[in-house]
């Protein structure tokens, strides 16, 4: 039976969390198909990365070469094409990350392999593959059937599989890299770290976070006042940064900061998955949104279905009262 492959994602020398999720999903598929799970490591140096995933796959294929030190989709595409042509795996799993995003569609289109992106779950139905995806701003889910083929590529959304400890007898196989140089038309130059701001939202115990629901920049001071009054800091969703209302270092989410406060109050934030991944570690989440079906209510502990502009003054007063009583 053709195998299940998972592409190991790493950055700046460390294996990324999505890798363990891919391996767990891969294990599920391999078990269902009674086949083996192979992890693909393209790296330089590769030892530490191979070690981090030992026992989590039946086999690890390693290509070690300087060109793999930093991710460059063009190079990964060439290396993967080579391996997929030789090995013909049934399903190859890639993270739906900035890395998989840049790679999977190009690889699938080049090789004529059906692919599905941003999948929450994957299952076999007969000889076909069915994926679950989130659509329409997360309001609905979709079941999608892939075209019948011998091979598939799937990118998996992060946070959908909980990594499991397994202890498999792992065989490590080394292979030569078919690529040795970065192509002229696309070269990795360097990484640029995110700028550090005055307020470190990752250290705050209380966070008031505002989204597009605050409507305009003129409404920010009231929100900031609310945050400060209750002893917290102000953060936001991406559109607030895109509009230039708050600096990037206040953005919570996959392309911003990950926060773990004791209290997170979300005001006018719909709860897109890219936002949720940045705040789901908060102890207590209170969401205010006028839309009762907003996805944020699937993540929050408490929900208030109301106009945030009416709720904020009341919350401010009541929380201040509570503080006074305490103090």
């Amino acid at each position: 039976m053709a195998e299940i492959f998972a592409l190991v994602e790493h950055r700046q020398g460390a294996v990324r969390d999505i890798t363990y999720e891919l391996l767990t999903c891969g294990r599920k598929l391999a078990t269902a198909q009674n086949t083996k799970l192979t992890a693909l490591v393209f790296a330089s140096p590769a030892d530490k990365i191979v070690e981090s995933i030992q026992e989590r796959a039946d086999r690890i294929i390693v290509m070690e070469h300087g060109v793999f030190e930093n991710f460059n989709a063009e190079i990964y595409q060439l290396a993967l094409r080579d391996i997929l042509e030789k090995e013909k795996p049934h399903v190859t799993l890639i993270g739906h990350t900035a890395f998989g995003y840049d790679l999977c569609p190009a690889l699938g289109a080049e090789m004529g392999i059906p692919f599905a992106t941003d999948c929450l779950d994957i299952e076999f139905t007969g000889s076909r593959l069915r994926v679950t995806r989130s659509v329409y701003d997360g309001k609905l889910d979709a079941h999608v059937l892939l075209k019948e083929h011998t091979s598939y590529l799937v990118t998996l959304r992060s946070g959908c599989f909980t990594p499991e400890e397994v202890s498999l007898a792992t065989e490590v196989v080394k292979q030569e890299s078919p690529v040795t140089e970065q192509p002229e038309y696309r070269k990795f130059v360097d990484y640029i770290e995110a700028a550090v701001g005055e307020v470190d939202i990752t250290k705050a115990d209380i966070i008031v976070s505002v989204g597009r629901g605050i409507k305009e920049q003129a409404n920010l001071p009231v929100m900031e006042e609310f945050a400060t009054a209750i002893g917290g800091v102000l953060s936001c969703s991406r559109p607030v940064v895109d509009a230039g209302w708050l600096p990037k270092d206040r953005q919570v989410g996959s392309s911003g900061k990950t926060v773990k406060p004791k209290l997170y109050i979300a005001l006018g934030i719909s709860g897109a998955f890219q936002h949720i991944v940045g705040m789901k570690g908060a102890d207590t989440i209170i969401a205010v949104n006028k839309d009762p079906n907003a996805p944020i209510f699937n993540e929050a502990d408490y929900g208030i279905v109301e106009d945030l502009f009416k709720v904020v003054p009341v919350l401010k007063e009541k929380i201040l009262d509570a503080k006074k009583l305490k103090g």
Partner: peptide, 13 residues
């Protein structure tokens, strides 16, 4: 390119 956590990947193309 914007990567996770706001890290940027700088490419020359």
């Amino acid at each position: 390119r914007e990567l996770e956590g706001g890290l940027l990947e700088h490419l020359a193309m």
